[in-house]
């Protein structure tokens, strides 16, 4: 199965969520947070925030159905820029809700044809409830439930008008996610793990009803927070989804998988502003992915918060 073009995808938000989790103010058990479903998680004392995220990425290849890594052919290029406007708000002390509105632009060049397209992507709403805050118990790690919904507000592949599909910006169906996150801090060090299940709703493409397989995402991160509240973290994320169903029959070999590594950092600019960034790469090695494109990407996010 050929990897599909890479529209804005929920799991990318998930990965970004961890990579961009508020490492700012992670110092000590102070405001530990990593792993969140939302790309703009509130730090310990924040009541609300808005942020703008810029994410350029380049396609370097793909994994095929046999989990072999295949570099992009000579002359093929795919560059993508994604901007996301995010906002988060706290409720009932331990809860937070986040909305993310993405916009994508893609440049793709293949076989002598170059094309540029873009548009609004799939809006994501997510929530998080911290049953136990990281660091508040020496024995019990922080524990949170996370939920999310991706709305099919972007343009799905079958609705793309451009020949190379660069105006594809959405998955074409609702996607519901639920999971949990654990995290703990030890003085300046912190670690977090998140596990999520994501299920898309069926969608109709011509005469075919497609239902994507259940997706499992596991994300781990560890890092160090400085006294200045600047922080650095390394992250690994793995997603695996089962075979899709087409008109009620399993499409064997259509399952997907992906492994992403990242290094992220946060730099407080003032009490209310911070800069977050990350460098991520899908690991271009055999067996670490299946039916997925592999990208190298950079993310920068500026956040204004209210405490």
């Amino acid at each position: 199965m050929t990897p599909r073009p890479s529209p804005f995808r929920f799991r990318e938000l998930l990965a970004a969520a961890v990579l961009l989790a508020p490492a700012a103010a992670l110092a000590q058990a102070c405001c530990t947070g990593a792993s969140a479903l939302a790309p703009a998680r509130l730090t310990l004392h924040e009541d609300a925030l808005v942020g703008v995220q810029l994410s350029p990425a380049a396609l370097v290849g793909s994994w095929d159905g046999a989990r072999a890594f295949v570099p992009s052919p000579a002359g093929a290029t795919e560059l993508r820029l994604q901007e996301v406007l995010v906002g988060s708000i706290r409720f009932l002390s331990r809860g937070q809700a986040t909305a993310a509105v993405p916009f994508l632009e893609t440049y793709r060049r293949l076989g002598g044809l170059g094309e540029f397209g873009g548009g609004f992507g799939d809006v994501v709403l997510s929530g998080r409830w911290d049953f136990v805050q990281a660091g508040e118990s020496a024995r019990i790690p922080g524990l949170a439930a996370v939920l999310g919904v991706q709305f099919p507000t972007g343009r799905p592949p079958e609705s793309a008008h451009l020949p190379l599909g660069t105006d594809t910006t959405g998955a074409g169906s609702f996607q519901f996610s639920a999971g949990f996150a654990v995290e703990q801090s030890w003085a300046h060090w912190f670690a977090t793990g998140t596990a999520l299940l994501t299920q898309a709703t069926p969608r109709k493409v011509g005469s075919i009803t497609e239902l994507l397989g259940l997706q499992v995402t596991v994300i781990g991160a560890a890092g160090y927070a400085f006294d200045t509240e600047a922080a650095l973290a390394v992250t690994v994320a793995y997603t695996d989804s089962g075979d899709a169903w087409l008109n009620g029959a399993v499409a064997k070999g259509s399952g997907r998988a992906r492994t992403t590594l990242g290094v992220s950092g946060a730099l407080p600019l003032s009490e209310d502003w911070r800069l977050q960034g990350s460098l991520t790469t899908d690991v271009p090695a055999p067996f670490l992915g299946r039916n997925e494109p592999t990208n190298v990407g950079l993310t920068l996010m500026i956040v204004r918060s209210w405490t």
Partner: peptide, 11 residues
């Protein structure tokens, strides 16, 4: 008022 310090790590 709101105290903006670190989480206290209890037993």
């Amino acid at each position: 008022t709101k105290a903006l310090g670190c989480v206290l790590r209890f037993k």
